[in-house]
Design a protein around this nucleic acid. Structure first.
Lengths: 173, 173
DNA sequence: TCAGTGCAAATACATATGTATTCGGCTAAT
DNA sequence: ATTAGCCGAATACATATGTATTTGCACTGA
């Protein structure tokens, strides 16, 4: 019967099935080892753990790096927008930006359309730092994905996006 | 052809390819939207964000819940073992266990084989609390996985495990 | 036997995050 | 035009986490 490692529900594999078997944390046979969310946390943890050490040598903390990657995509960006993208509270981002200002990585200025909002922009030095870090991060990424085909990565992305979408809808109870 | 939504490396999809294209954070065309690690963090964040609110109504914080899920699998467990499984520093776990002791969720006793180690066990009350929480977590899980086949979940698990394995090897530089 | 080394846990201290509040600017209703 | 309410950011305060150190036990080798 069933019983294969993590996989093989033996059920047909058509579409959404009600019984999540061993994946479902409410099932008695559930094991952390087979929990998608546990494995996500684990992978994410290891990924950033290693990277942290390297980044620190360049004077960049993990949260600062996160903010920089957000700014690389959209610039300038408001404190609130950065907070949302970086999955962090506004107050925290506000303080991180302070540190980045001291380090000369970013500049801030009030949005001319609305003086309440603070727009943040990477300085040339900030961009330079980001460029210096890029190949390091790239190596870490390659290391993480070694032996995994681009096709599998695409599949992973689709599933993760679907999960994020699902969780974007109204919460439980 | 390939080419769906996030994918489209246009390259053949055989096995491991050196060029990770838009998935690679060191690539100029890279976008956070298509980053596996960003999406993992995002999914994990939303998943726990919602759950946190519910758990708090039952007097259980996120880290406490995490410890409980670890203990459900292996009991008793040492502080160090819990810390490793929960991806948290020992000192932090040590203090979390203190809180759990106060709440009567666990008991501790020195390991008779080695008096340095502290073995932690769920009390009946702790197990009861865990049982009460289980269906709630189950619902959250179902919500997250809605519309995703068990086959896709199995695929997700395989990929995540592979990534974790890769990152378990020696770090970069 | 016991000194030295190493490890697990606990704790003092430093730092970072979150929550609640404040400050100031925007907007809409009167 | 004035005021009440809302909203973004900043900050005071509380809490949680991590880092460095301490404490006590265990194992090893002289």
């Amino acid at each position: 019967m069933n019983t294969r490692s993590a996989t093989a529900s033996t059920k047909q594999e058509g579409e959404h099935v009600e019984n999540r078997g061993e994946y479902d944390p409410s099932n008695p046979t559930f094991r952390l080892e087979n929990s998608p969310f546990y494995l996500m946390a684990h992978a994410d943890f290891k990924y950033h753990e290693d990277m942290d050490k390297v980044l620190h040598k360049h004077g960049v903390s993990k949260p600062i790096y996160r903010v920089m990657t957000v700014l690389r995509e959209r610039q300038p960006a408001s404190i609130g927008a950065i907070a949302e993208a970086a999955l962090t509270k506004r107050s925290t981002i506000s303080r991180i930006i302070d540190r980045m200002l001291e380090q000369g990585l970013v500049t801030t200025e009030p949005n001319p359309e609305d003086n309440r909002v603070t727009e943040v922009t990477l300085t040339p030095a900030g961009q330079q730092t980001l460029r210096k870090l890029t190949p390091i991060v790239g190596r870490q990424f390659s290391r993480a994905m070694e032996g995994i085909s681009n096709r599998d990565i695409a599949h992973l992305l689709r599933t993760l996006k679907k999960i994020s979408d699902n969780l974007g809808k109204l919460p439980i109870e």
